[in-house]
Design a protein around this nucleic acid. Structure first.
Lengths: 240, 240
DNA sequence: ATTTCTCCTTGACCTGGATCAATTTGAAAA
DNA sequence: TTTTCAAATTGATCCAGGTCAAGGAGAAAT
C-alpha cells in the first residue's frame, strides 16, 4: 500500500468559507454574512504535533473544537486510575462539548498525528447564536449528533463478540471518511492497537489477532496502520 | 423494607413554577417572567402507565421530554435486532435529545412505572432561547450533561468486572436520588434484572448472583426491587 | 383462593477472550 | 548506517462470566 508522499506546503489556515469540512461543521447552511461573523469568532491555533495535548482533564473550558485536519483522541480516567478512550475525532468533527455544563474539561484531548484545530469560544458562540437562528440550530444538531455517536458506541459494546466489534469499528471509520468525500476503502488508522483495544473494551492482543484473522479470510488487507477493506459486504455481514 | 402506601390523590400537574424538580430541569435560574413564558411552551401529557411507550424508534421528533415523576427506559436496536438499553431516566431528568439532529427518534422510550412527563416542543424552545440567554445556556448545559452521562457509562463499561459495574450502578442510582433531595440509601429499582443486565453488558444471572453476593457480604439489603445500601464506604471501595 | 405467568434465583458446565510470555517489526534517534 | 525503543504479532494457558437448566416467589388474573 502506498503512503502519501509528504510534500511540505506553506502552512495555510483556511477561513470557514474556504474550509474543506465546512459542511460538516458549525457553519453549515449559514448565509454569507453570517458565515463571516462566525469566522471572526474562530481561533485558529498553530498545528498540534503528534502527542501534544489540546486540553487536559480539569482545565477550564474556553470553547469547543473542530478539526480541520488530523486526528484527536479523547480519554478519561476511571475511578481506579485506568485510561479509558471515549472517542477518536477526525477532520470535520466537533468535540469538547462535554465541558459546557461544568465549565471544566472532564477528559483529556491529545493529537494522534499533526493536527489542525479551530477553537470556537463558547460564550461568543452562544451570543452569536442569539442573533443567527441557523447557528443555534446547528449547535443543537451537533450536540445531538454527539449524543447519538456515544449511543452507537454503547450499542456496539453491548453484547457483541470481539469479531463484531472490530468489524463495526472498521466500517465506522470507513463511513466517517466517506462522510468527508474521502477515499473510504483504504485509509490509515490514526491510533495504536492499544487505543483501539481500550476503546472497544478488548485486550490489545485480541485486536491484533482479529485483524490477522480478517486478513487471512481476505476481508481486509492490513499493513501496520494502513488498512484496505477488500470485501465490504462480507465485513458488514460479520458486523451483523 | 416498607413499601410506600399507595394513596390516590386527585391528579395535579404542577406548572414549572411549582415543580419539585424545577432546579434540575430547563427552567433553572430563569427570571419569573421568563419562567412563565417557558411554562406556556410545555405540554403536560396524561400520565403514562407502566409499559406505555412515550415514543418509538422512527417516529418524527416533536420535542424533548422531562420527567416530573416516574421512570423511563430508552433503548435502541442493534444491527442484529437485539435490544440495547441506552439509559434509565428518573424524575428531574431530560431526554430525547438524540433526536434533534435527524428529526426522528433513533430509539424507543417506554415507561417503567406510572410516569408523568412534560414535552417541550423543540422548535418553540429554540425560538424562546433566542430571546432568553439563560434558557439557551440551560439547554446547552443539559445537552452537555447528557454527553457526560454517556461518557460515564463508557467509563463504567470499559475494562471493569461485573462486581465493579454493579456496585457503580447502585451508587449511580443512589446519587441520582440524592440529586433530587430524596432518600438515597433506600430506593426501589424501577427496572427489571433483565434491563439492568442489558444496560451493563452482563448476563441477567450474573446481576442476580452479584446482588445476592453483596447481600451476603452485608453491603446491601435487597428484597425484590427494594434496595437498601448498608455500607456505602465498602460499596464505593468495591466500585474502586 | 387458586391459577397463571413473569421475574428472579441458584447450580453446573463450558468457552471466548484476558493474561502472561517470547519474538518480530518498524520507526525514531544517534 | 547502526542503535534503541515502542508497537505489533503470535503462542500457550486460564478463569470470569456466559449459557443452559431447573426450580421458587410475587404479582396479576380468574
Amino acid at each position: 500500500m502506498l503512503k502519501p508522499n509528504p510534500i511540505h506546503l506553506i502552512h495555510v489556515k483556511p477561513a470557514c468559507e474556504q474550509c474543506r469540512v465546512r459542511e460538516l461543521c458549525l457553519p453549515t447552511n449559514l448565509k454569507s454574512q453570517d458565515l463571516s461573523l462566525m469566522d471572526k469568532l474562530v481561533v485558529r491555533r498553530e498545528p498540534l504535533a503528534k502527542g501534544e495535548f489540546l486540553y487536559r482533564a480539569g482545565e477550564k473550558f474556553k470553547g469547543i473544537y473542530a478539526i480541520q485536519d488530523g486526528a484527536v483522541k479523547t480519554y478519561g480516567l476511571t475511578v481506579d486510575g485506568r485510561e479509558q478512550v471515549t472517542g477518536f475525532h477526525i477532520s470535520g468533527e466537533v468535540f469538547g462539548l462535554d465541558a459546557i455544563d461544568g465549565e471544566v474539561h472532564p477528559c483529556n484531548a491529545v493529537a494522534l498525528e499533526k493536527t489542525e484545530v479551530c477553537q470556537i469560544p463558547f460564550a461568543k458562540l452562544e451570543e452569536l447564536s442569539m442573533e443567527v437562528p441557523e447557528l443555534l440550530h446547528n449547535l443543537s444538531r451537533i450536540m445531538s449528533r454527539e449524543i447519538m455517536r456515544e449511543q452507537h458506541v454503547l450499542l456496539m459494546l453491548g453484547g457483541t463478540s470481539a469479531e463484531q466489534r472490530i468489524a463495526r469499528f472498521l466500517l465506522n471509520m470507513s463511513q466517517r471518511y466517506a462522510d468527508q468525500k474521502l477515499v473510504s476503502d483504504r485509509f490509515r488508522l490514526c491510533m495504536s492497537r492499544q487505543d483501539i483495544s481500550n476503546y472497544l473494551g478488548l485486550a490489545l492482543e485480541t485486536v491484533s489477532r482479529q485483524f490477522s484473522q480478517f486478513q487471512e479470510r481476505g476481508l481486509i488487507d492490513i499493513q501496520n496502520r494502513y488498512v484496505q477493506i477488500k470485501q465490504f459486504s462480507l465485513l458488514k455481514q460479520v458486523a451483523q
